[in-house]
Design a protein around this nucleic acid. Structure first.
Lengths: 342, 342
DNA sequence: GAATAATGTGCAAACGTTTGACCTCCTGCA
DNA sequence: TGCAGGAGGTCAAACGTTTGCACATTATTC
């Protein structure tokens, strides 16, 4: 008992062959009740657990799926979005008795390399990919494993993916402000690394057009998500100007909170002077003063759907490339004020 | 090429035996330069990657470590502490070319069960355990795998673990307030599920005693961490009272932010009326107004040290149960005011 | 009273590697 | 010439399962 018990040990003690043990434990109907019970008892007594490596080797299947983060796993974890997705992934993986193997962020390894690495390792029988990036070389060329992406893929026609309708989301955030009289709206947090951002921006422009509100290109303010915080000197110029925005569509709660603090230093307050519609519904935004009106993209649901889809693909119950659209929710709180139409 | 290339395919094309291929690829000195090159080329051409399952089977080692969360992984991810730890774990795992297998939160599976499950699965060759709980049945009885815990273990004598000195941390947070004249201090966020909390509380009491400040037991306010938010009606009574606390030691930033908002509704402001020293140095607290004075327990470092320790144990370069103490940092910001000693 | 079908079990091959032991040259030396 | 010894390689066993097939027993049928 010093070393782990193998199926042979069980076989010997139960006085049957290894094959019988194997079948007995897997409830093969060809084994008699009596033998089955005996085998079970011995297995329990020896604390026997089949070696998964051996098992996987012969069955050519592992109950493991790889999970890949766009940024190295380490970096992305800083933002609550990713843990939430992971939460969802973990929930259904757990239910279906799968394990998740994390792509651990090897420094300066591209997403593509990480993907290959994970695929080649032979451990994963499927891949979840938080492929939110736009660069084409990060596409999973040559990956033969079942794979579903979270976020908008480069090649939607041939990919399985789950995503929000980000052009709609961008549009709705903007319309929410427009309907309340705002016309001078700034778009904060444009990050061209994410396709998602392109889409939200598209929605933003559409909505503005619908209300005949002009889009000022210098009011499209970039900010790297995750690493956070935009160029405040530029924002300073904009908001110190007499003709300043009355509202902001902000791509991320932390960004909005940062902006709020910054506006305070300018003597501007939210929502009295500037309204904000934010994204991501974080705890921080919820307990912030004022509580942030924000769009919840339901990252947990994204994870749940992605994992469910992947496991179904692996099981072979899904045929053609599929796309799941997770609805978002606009949560009304206290960061938006109505203003009279000029 | 429809199916994955095996070592035999390489052997055939390179006109050597499988053993030679194996040795060539692993840089065994017994293989000549010329053969090595030939094998390498063929392997590359076939896009051959050794099957890790087979490899692990014979070598009796997997380059995988299991990562276990006290709460089901899903639940805990909500708090920034855990992702940060994961970040640290991932960093060193990646560097050492290890993968991390997440214990996916199967509903109502105890920590102990999850541990067994992970250990029995045979995939992990070591375990990281976020064992912050106090209940004794969650101890890893019978686990034979190398294992290091993050947080204070139940059996410190025989465990490998990395932790903060939480009694010191609790003490320092309190002393910071005491030195600035505060004597009426409330302890917010006591959660008896965590040993950590017991320790911080101990430090709190010690510090209070040093300054001869009385500890009022009804000012020890519980709150479940992660799930968040204390009993505000109770807090309301306390803070509406004339003889109210002038300061709070709060176990978590989100908690502090919640408290701040609540105090605002009472017409009390931070730090003018109530000072707060918080824990966990979250982004939310950093961008909060006022910015939170908070103790950073360096969760990322916890992860880094834990994984490093575990990998060293696995490598056999660590003998006896070891304890690593990660220093914390008190970050001074704007949530504490000095008050004149009465 | 055989042939036929269930029923229960064992044999051995297979999964794709690694590795200790063995083989075959060849070189150098006495 | 004979032989030690090194260099370079092959063979086959092993890792711990699963599973197709063969086998043996007992029950069923004509």
């Amino acid at each position: 008992m010093a070393t782990k018990a193998t199926i042979k040990d069980v076989a010997r003690l139960a006085e049957v062959s290894p094959s019988t043990v194997s079948r007995a434990l897997r409830d093969n109907p060809r084994i008699s009740q009596e033998v089955r019970r005996r085998v079970r008892d011995v297995a329990k007594a020896l604390d026997f657990h089949p070696n998964q490596m051996a098992r996987s080797l012969v069955k050519q299947e592992t109950r493991i799926v790889g999970v890949l983060f766009a940024e190295s796993a380490s970096a992305s974890m800083g933002h609550p979005f990713y843990p939430a997705v992971l939460q969802g992934l973990g929930k259904v993986a757990g239910e279906r008795r799968y394990h998740m193997l994390l792509s651990t962020g090897v420094e300066n390894m591209s997403e593509a390399d990480a993907m290959r690495d994970m695929a080649d390792s032979g451990f994963a029988s499927g891949l979840i990919c938080l492929s939110t990036f736009t660069s084409p070389q990060d596409a999973g060329a040559g990956i033969t494993l079942p794979m579903v992406e979270i976020g908008h893929p480069l090649d939607p026609e041939h990919s399985y993916y789950v995503d929000n309708d980000n052009v709609l989301a961008g549009g709705e955030a903007t319309r929410y402000l427009l309907r309340r009289g705002h016309r001078h709206i700034l778009f904060l947090g444009y990050d061209k690394r994410f396709i998602m951002m392109e889409n939200r921006m598209k929605g933003f422009r559409q909505a503005m057009a619908e209300f005949s509100a002009p889009v000022r290109e210098d009011w499209i303010v970039p900010a790297r998500l995750i690493e956070n915080m935009p160029d405040f000197t530029h924002l300073g110029e904009i908001f110190r100007h007499a003709d300043r925005p009355t509202a902001v569509v902000s791509m991320d709660d932390p960004l909005s909170i940062g902006l709020n603090g910054f506006l305070l230093t300018l003597g501007l307050s939210v929502p009295a002077d500037v309204s904000i519609v934010s994204f991501n519904n974080t705890q921080a935004g919820q307990y912030h003063t004022p509580a942030l009106t924000t769009i919840d993209v339901h990252p947990r649901e994204l994870g749940i759907h992605a994992m469910t889809l992947l496991l179904n693909i692996i099981r072979g119950t899904v045929e053609n490339p599929t796309h799941i659209d997770v609805p978002f929710t606009l949560i009304q709180r206290d960061s938006v004020a109505e203003i009279p139409v000029e």
